[in-house]
Design a binder for these strands. Sequence first.
DNA 1: CTGAAAGCGCTTACAG
DNA 2: CTGAAAGCGCTTACAG
Lengths: 330, 330
Amino acid sequence: MAGVSQTTVSRVLSGASSVSTETRARVLAAIEQVNYAPNHSARAMRTRRSGTVGIVVARLTNPFYPELLEALNRALSAQGLRMILWDAELLGEEPAVDAIRAGLVDGIMFTTVVRDSPAVRAAFDGGAPIVIVNRPAPDLPCDQVASANGAGGRRIAKYLFHNGRRRFGVLVGPGDVDTSTEREDGFRAGLSELGVAPDDVVRIEGDFTHASGYAGLVELMSRPEPPDAVFCVNDLIALGALDAARVLGVAVPGQLWVAGYDNIEMASWAAYDLTTAEQPKQAMADAAVELLRARMADPTRALEMRRFPPVLQVRGSTAGRAESGAPAVA
Amino acid sequence: MAGVSQTTVSRVLSGASSVSTETRARVLAAIEQVNYAPNHSARAMRTRRSGTVGIVVARLTNPFYPELLEALNRALSAQGLRMILWDAELLGEEPAVDAIRAGLVDGIMFTTVVRDSPAVRAAFDGGAPIVIVNRPAPDLPCDQVASANGAGGRRIAKYLFHNGRRRFGVLVGPGDVDTSTEREDGFRAGLSELGVAPDDVVRIEGDFTHASGYAGLVELMSRPEPPDAVFCVNDLIALGALDAARVLGVAVPGQLWVAGYDNIEMASWAAYDLTTAEQPKQAMADAAVELLRARMADPTRALEMRRFPPVLQVRGSTAGRAESGAPAVA
DNA sequence: CTGAAAGCGCTTACAG
DNA sequence: CTGAAAGCGCTTACAG
């Protein structure tokens, strides 16, 4: 090399300790010349830090997830961290959990439902740095970031009612997924506070897909007294519902109002123009990274659950009617 | 531990060398009991294999990329590999290239335009295991996988012409991106072979977004002699164009036919029902992984460029007219 | 079939 | 400000 010890090279690379200006220059020149790059594994082995965070996703076909992924990538990059991606549908959550123990990643984030399993349970109980984003899981002991789903559902209920809607449909996801149940429960609670009878809220369970929303709306509209407003627990379902309305010839918003949840990019496109509860994805991603780093720094700190209030985006699928506008007659 | 040497443990873990049945059982039991997980960094340092592949993406907001990402993830998982994800828009391509030298990843795949830079150039010239997927880059020396864009464009041209279309618009991406120029050139070549005058093909340059397609169609339809068919070089542009048609009151397919390229999931939704050239994403992803592994195994093998012929998906945006149907009058 | 030893490429006390 | 030495946790010849 260029006349100095390994130690010194390490020092100029880390920048932590002091090195004479002249030596530093000499080392830098040598590095440049040899095109030297420090070995990641060796460094990770010594420091016990990989600089990498595991992200567990599923259903990338729901545009919400790529959008969240971009936000997470931005938040991680800002902290000099990188992400390794696992698809829970392909492999389950075991590989991610194992990766923590193997030192492959410093921590992981789940953006999906976390199925309980011995390995998963052991990781949580062992206090591994894990954050759950987007899907609240009250019974799992880890830091969490989620939308204030209940408040969001309630807000949409009030918005629809105050604008004259009286017969409601709600298109929900699988019965055991908290994002869906929280939004639905909030919605129903909001309506019930306004005096709407439970019978005037028709519920159809499906999954978080376009196809499910499509089928759900077809079913709703085939009822003797079809609803005049439908709340879909996510945007993808709502887009499916709007497509079904289009095919059935149901006028939106003339005959039916539709609202979603998430505010994915497509919700704003002319074909849909969907009123929806926006999740502040970047803020949520930033919070998730912050919580993960805090946990890594102090494994004993108290668990935190951060809820982000959604912002109502009013668009054409509810006639663009202002949230606080005077009640209109249906 | 359980009465054996480190060497023996390593052997039962790797499974390569022979270990007596009894010893193996004893080791396995101990591993189970201690909940032991081998350290990834140490292993990677010794074997000089990380088992990880870097994927460089951008514009996850174009649904084509999440779909490709899922396919890549599937192909990599099948080989026991994992992926680390970089967003080129956030960080450029340097981190990925550096990661190879640092041994963080065994190779990388670019799914985006690769901007030439000293570091990038050095990696390519050094014969690093790199595969470019989706975006052909003829001047970069590495294995590549791409759609047969020229053939795809030509095929759409013939399809439209043989079904009576005579005045054409083409909505293209940035002028320096090969996917766009190849598709456009194929389209124009196909029309020219059929005797269509270049003046009957109006070209509008934009980018690969919904907004760009929207604006492009508005411009096309404002011309004195608007086209009766528009080819969009990707689906996202086509969806924007269809939304513009909807807003302008231009009937599709009555007044205007629209075709895209990619066959993203949304192309099949009722709101759009878009005729498009499908890219066989899983086959392309499988090929990319195969090429990368072949390169890792033999750095001296000849460079390969694999082209995948697209499959025409005929839908409502071109009246669902069969590809080989008798010419209809416009 | 099994083990002792070397070494992968770093960082970090410990000395000077 | 700089260096020699130890050690992170594995795998892989080399012996037996």
